[in-house]
Design a binder for these strands. Structure first.
Lengths: 228, 228
DNA sequence: AAAAAGAAATGACATTTATCATTTGTTAGA
DNA sequence: TCTAACAAATGATAAATGTCATTTCTTTTT
């Protein structure tokens, strides 16, 4: 199995603060796994005893509502860490993580993480920063969801998706989502999402080819997302 | 000025993990202040160089939307800590904190906090737990806001307000909010909030006397909040 | 205590969004 | 490659929510 010390991914997250020794220990204890498209890496309400470092692949973080609807809270890609919130707060996982394409991840047992937190302040601080940033973004989302109409939220989401996933070779947003998933991100009915996407297309703000979405007029999208 | 070692508030938050020495240092550097009703303890976008420990009083945490509307993200009362997210992530404050009644707070400089984080792992862990829990709740809110109708969100909010602030001597929820603030909490127009409150009253689920709200039928409220 | 300002309540109406039904298009398994 | 299953699109309509105008009530100021 490959060594954490050599893994480029660590440079994107809190693991870059670890010493060579700490990385070695984690290397010895980690397990690498492959998650196929559609499979869950973790499930809301279940306990986990470690965290996941995503080497490759994209996933969605969702929450099941009391009415049975799925709400997509966040999209995550390679370089990110998942599960630290749960092991830090000592609570079950709050979100279901589902692979949107094949993923390569490393599982690192809770014991090693807690030991590292105890002996490496820089690592702790990085984790805190990470969660703090997430909290900040979450608060933004609350405000958006509560106060912006669906159209504005769709514009916002399209911009954010491009920011997270970048572009494929044809200039489309480099993520394949169903219309239902888009609807579940902005919190609306699938039909409403479809209609608004069609409108954006008609107004030449975006182009649609099947599930491929290309942003054509970002400044208009930005205006819409801010209510103009 | 009073000593932190004697302060009962510390037992409600991360400060209970501090040693006597650490508490003494903080005692020496802290400043106590009084915030009058309506005044801001911190303002969205501004930098702070320390954190606040709330000894007494209630406040709202809000975010100003691009459309100029205020979104209430959270209510906080004595015992809580504010501002740690900002000093940990080294970013400006993300939320405006406004006193809903006179508040007594202690300000503790960033330097002392960072030093304590570096030398006291238990304190770090408590802070992480705290932020992790907040993140978890924030994710819940996103889902609620995105998918539940206004009526359900109002029911939810009333239950949550009672949980946070408890009851006054007459059995009312022990917090005075304007209808506008209630509307800004659930993310709706003031008129809509008023109408729905009136409906709840008509259906004898709550009683209203001016700004005093009493919950009469909690199980119905719980059902409504879950979409039944 | 009266006047002014602000908050709450309510009606009428417009707009947004959801739901249901149906058609068309696409994907993947037999 | 065909066809069953699923996804997307669209229309018609209902329901939810927002906006504006007005009245009533409450609080604050003079």
């Amino acid at each position: 199995m490959s060594k954490c010390g050599q893994c480029i991914i660590k440079s994107f997250n809190a693991f870059h603060t670890l010493t060579i020794d700490e990385l070695d220990t984690i290397s010895d204890h980690k397990t690498s796994l492959t998650i196929k498209k559609g499979e869950n890496l973790m499930t809301e309400g279940h306990a986990i005893n470690g965290l996941y470092c995503i080497k490759q692949g994209k996933c969605k973080l969702t929450k099941l509502n009391t009415n049975g609807k799925e709400q997509i809270i966040k999209f995550v890609k390679g370089g990110d860490i998942l599960g630290h919130r749960s092991i830090l707060s000592e609570e079950p996982v709050g979100l279901t993580v589902t692979a949107l394409e094949e993923m390569k991840v490393c599982f690192i047992p809770k014991g090693d993480i807690m030991q590292t937190i105890n002996q490496n302040t820089a690592f702790s601080l990085q984790l805190m920063k990470n969660i703090s940033n997430q909290l900040n973004h979450a608060n933004d989302s609350i405000s958006q969801m509560a106060q912006k109409p669906v159209k504005d939220r769709l514009a916002e989401t399209l911009l954010k998706l491009e920011e997270i996933f970048g572009l494929d070779k044809d200039g489309n947003i480099d993520i394949i989502l169903t219309r239902e998933e888009i609807a579940n991100t902005i919190g609306t009915a699938t039909e409403s999402a479809i209609r608004l996407l069609s409108n954006f297309k008609k107004e030449k703000i975006i182009s649609l080819q099947g599930k491929h979405i290309k942003l054509l007029d970002r400044s208009t999208l930005r205006n819409i997302s801010e209510g103009y």
